[in-house]
């Protein structure tokens, strides 16, 4: 059972990584990077490391996305003025 879960989630992770690299829009790339962190935290549960899974869910998927959005917001605001 765990082998099937690892195979499916790993395939989705690789596809999301390729999507994050080849995507033109910056916001879509950030969203795909958030999806990678989500699936990684599921894999940490299968690997019997719940503390790492909790940290990855809070920091990797939540806080990193918000920090990226702050940077994108700064860049877009400068765009509007200049």
């Amino acid at each position: 059972m765990t082998t099937i879960i690892i195979a499916v989630l790993g395939a989705i992770m690789i596809a999301a990584a390729v999507l994050a690299i080849v995507q033109k829009s910056l916001l879509s790339a950030v969203i795909a990077a958030g999806a990678i962190s989500l699936l990684a935290s599921l894999l940490y549960i299968v690997l019997a490391a719940p503390d790492v899974a909790m940290t990855e869910a809070a920091i990797g998927s939540g806080l990193t996305t918000i920090v990226f959005l702050f940077a994108l917001n700064k860049i877009r605001k400068e765009d509007k003025h200049g």
Partner: peptide
């Protein structure tokens, strides 16, 4: 694009963490 380079760095980070936990 510099933002895309930083996203690539973050993906690489996740891969290293997965190997270390495994």
């Amino acid at each position: 694009n510099i933002i895309k380079i930083i996203i690539g760095f973050s993906i690489m980070d996740t891969g290293v963490h997965l190997i270390m936990v495994s």
